[in-house]
């Protein structure tokens, strides 16, 4: 199972990196959110995908899955959610003021 997850994460990372290297700002933001998906799946995978009950003591099971990565992922999800929404608003504002979403045109050696 870990092997398939790793392959999937690899594909997500590849696509994310490809999108980040493109010129359009929206594609870059999509790339960053794909990358965060990738690392969250990586966190889950790296704690071994053993079969076990959900980490609720009421389940009275013999074995539970590792609860720690789930807490880490939950933290990381809300952080990246906040950052992504800020990034979207920033991109919107930049589009309004600068009139372009092409990163090539945002090099800005000159000081306006």
């Amino acid at each position: 199972m870990e092997l398939y997850m790793s392959l999937a994460i690899g594909i997500i990372f590849t696509v994310g990196v490809y999108l980040i290297l493109s010129r359009s700002l929206l594609r870059i933001i999509l790339g960053t959110s794909l990358l965060t998906h990738g690392v969250h799946m990586l966190l889950l995978t790296m704690s071994r995908l053993k079969t076990g009950a959900a980490p609720l003591l009421g389940q009275k099971a013999d074995a539970y899955v590792d609860p720690l990565p789930q807490a880490l992922i939950l933290t990381s999800i809300v952080i990246s959610f906040g950052v992504t929404s800020f990034f979207f608003v920033l991109a919107y504002k930049a589009y309004q003021k600068l009139g372009t979403d092409d990163m090539e045109l945002l090099r800005g050696k000159d000081d306006e």
């Binding site: 960053t32 690392v39 990586l42 966190l43 995978t45 704690s47 071994r48 950052v83």
Partner: peptide, 14 residues
């Protein structure tokens, strides 16, 4: 770099 940080934490935890 934050994404890479989480990836590094994941590897180290693993």
């Amino acid at each position: 770099s934050s994404t890479l940080f989480v990836a590094a934490v994941a590897y180290l935890y693993g």
